[in-house]
Design a protein around this nucleic acid. Sequence first.
DNA 1: CTTATTAATCGTAATATTACAATAAACATA
DNA 2: TATGTTTATTGTAATATTACGATTAATAAG
Lengths: 108, 108
Amino acid sequence: MGVTKSEFFTKEQNEIATIAKVLGHPARIAILDFIIKLETCGCGDLVKDIGLAQPTISQHLKELKKVGILKGKIEGTSVCYCIDEEKWDSIRNKFNKFLNKNSTENCC
Amino acid sequence: MGVTKSEFFTKEQNEIATIAKVLGHPARIAILDFIIKLETCGCGDLVKDIGLAQPTISQHLKELKKVGILKGKIEGTSVCYCIDEEKWDSIRNKFNKFLNKNSTENCC
DNA sequence: CTTATTAATCGTAATATTACAATAAACATA
DNA sequence: TATGTTTATTGTAATATTACGATTAATAAG
């Protein structure tokens, strides 16, 4: 037990849940907010801005990279992180589609 | 350790992360899909449709109620679950706002 | 070559989540 | 009252997540 039974669900359900799960931590929302503002995008800047330890930020960045939301470009000793705009668009579409489903009837 | 440091983040960041976290499990997406289709909305119907055990579904329903996405109306021995349309709208707005942020520059 | 600088990885403790059997609670019906 | 039906709760095992110190890896600067 303790392990999600993905085989019970559709591809679409698993996909939206996977993205939502990654967005389900305020540090990762803060990272995305910061990178979108683009006040620079190195790991160290995020550490300073957010206040969590460097390995923790690095771990969150890894999660965001894993699902394809972030890309990283190595620049000397530093890394520049950016949103993958294509992925971002597809996420926006998925969530729009899901959240715009409207129930017609209502029992309560 | 092991506990999310919510005090490091803004109210908005914590709010969107809380909702995303609840949407971050395919069973809860499947529950919402089913209720939106409204092929009836009792816990037993969800158990049959999804295939997880009744206590597991009940637990997921509890999560969805906790953040206000679902309301439940008791009807005899059964319970009718429904989307809270007002909350659903506010979630749609929050996600739209978040996902429509666009980074102008891009380093990679 | 040595010493910073920056980010990733490893290891691990604390905590949270997922799933379900067993049970309880609430109501309906015979 | 006894019995069935439906959902919630309790308890618990398995697993996942979060956070960070210590370390490593890679490049830059002196």
